[in-house]
Simulated scan of single mutants.
Amino acid sequence: MRTCFAWLSSSSARNGLAELSQIAIDKLTVAPTAKLGGVIGEADDALLFRVSRALALLFHVV
C-alpha cells in the first residue's frame, strides 16, 4: 500500500506559483545539485508545516 499526502496551494508572488497547484508527497528521492535549477519561489510557514507533518507520517515518526 502506498501512502500519499496531497493538498492545494494558492498562487502568490512569494511562492512563484502561477495558478492553484497540487502538491503531493509520496516518496523521497535524491537529485544531484547540478540538475537543480534556480529558485522559483519560497513556501510559507503553513505549507512547510504541512510538508513536515506529511513526511513525519510517511516515515512513521509520529
Rank of each mutant, 00 (worst) to 15 (best):
A56K: 14
G37Q: 07
G37E: 04
S10N: 14
Q22L: 11
R14M: 14
G37M: 05
S11K: 15
D26Q: 09
D44Y: 02
S10T: 08
L48I: 09
L17C: 02
G38K: 12
V39W: 06
D44K: 08
V61R: 13
L8H: 07
R53Q: 13
L28R: 08
F49G: 06
D44L: 07
S52L: 09
D44H: 10
R50H: 09
D26F: 13
L17K: 00
G41P: 00
V51C: 12
L58K: 09
S21H: 07
A54P: 00
S21Q: 03
V30R: 11
L8I: 06
F5L: 02
L48N: 08
S21P: 00
A13V: 13
R53P: 00
W7D: 08
L36S: 05
G38S: 14
S9K: 11
K35Q: 11
P32V: 01
L47C: 08
S21N: 04
A46S: 12
H60P: 00
R50T: 05
E19S: 12
G16H: 04
P32E: 03
A56D: 13
A54M: 03
D26T: 07
A43G: 01
F49K: 14
R53N: 11
A18V: 02
L17V: 01
T33C: 07
L28M: 10
V62L: 13
E42C: 06
K27L: 05
F59P: 00
C4D: 03
C4I: 12
M1H: 13
L20V: 12
L55K: 09
S21V: 03
L57H: 13
S12T: 15
P32M: 01
L20S: 05
I23A: 04
N15T: 06
A43L: 14
L48G: 01
L28N: 05
G37P: 07
A31R: 14
F49C: 06
R50S: 13
L58V: 04
A18W: 01
V51I: 15
L8P: 02
L57E: 15
V61C: 05
L58A: 06
E42W: 01
A24L: 05
A46N: 06
S10W: 05
V62M: 11
K35A: 15
R53W: 06
A43T: 06
T3Y: 10
I25P: 00
Q22S: 12
T3K: 15
L36W: 03
A13G: 10
